[in-house]
Amino acid sequence: MNQMTDFNAGQPQPMLRVSNLTHRVSLETDTLTILKGVNLEINRGESVAIVGRSGSGKTTLLGLLAGLDTPSEGAVELDGARISEFGEDERAKLRASRVGFVFQSFQLLPAMTALENVMLPLELAGIENPEARARELLGRVGLEERLNHTPRQLSGGEQQRVAIARAFASDPVVLFADEPTGNLDNRTGHAVSDLLMALNREQGTTLVMVTHDEHLAARCGRQFSIEAGELTEPSPAQEAAD
């Protein structure tokens, strides 16, 4: 095990700590500031929703939290590791062992079967017997009959269930979900979010979810809202209500 996991073992440490996070993108003529000095702390096992309108910067924030991109300014610490200072490969290694993703558009590879899609992160992490673990997870999301179907042969809800199985495959400590029900109808969306929540509780995973669906957000332990790149602290009233 490396140092990151043993970081201050025994002490309650935040899973994610973000300080003064700013992100800018250069356009052809000028520079656009997408995130403005965001500060945030999320504890282990917490479930957090970040709500905001389209273009508010929530998905960018999620990408930076997950180490998919590096911020222009500020720091991101994930499980004690200051990933904003990591190189691309170090971040990749961290993602392989500790981070899971669920995307709005599922992001399943069309050439692969459901089983192969779930096996992918296991193979990348070099885990032995990836097939057994993948079968077990697909069974857990109710797709044991559809192991050898390709995404094209699956409905949207089924595809998202495969994506959830894939997200939990490598036993992540933190799961990032980007509008996980955004492409699904209400009923399917409910079923999928039930599954996500249930698995999250079972595995004790920290969940960070970006959504504009207030019902879904309400199912999370804490909610943040983001507008024009600025993150608003959750009000105590809301916290108490949960």
């Binding site: 990749a92 993703f101 050439a111 992918l120």
Partner: peptide
Amino acid sequence: QDRQREGALLRTLGGRQSL
């Protein structure tokens, strides 16, 4: 396009660049 999508996803899921 498929290859690039796959590459991006592999990286997201933790595949190192060199790999």
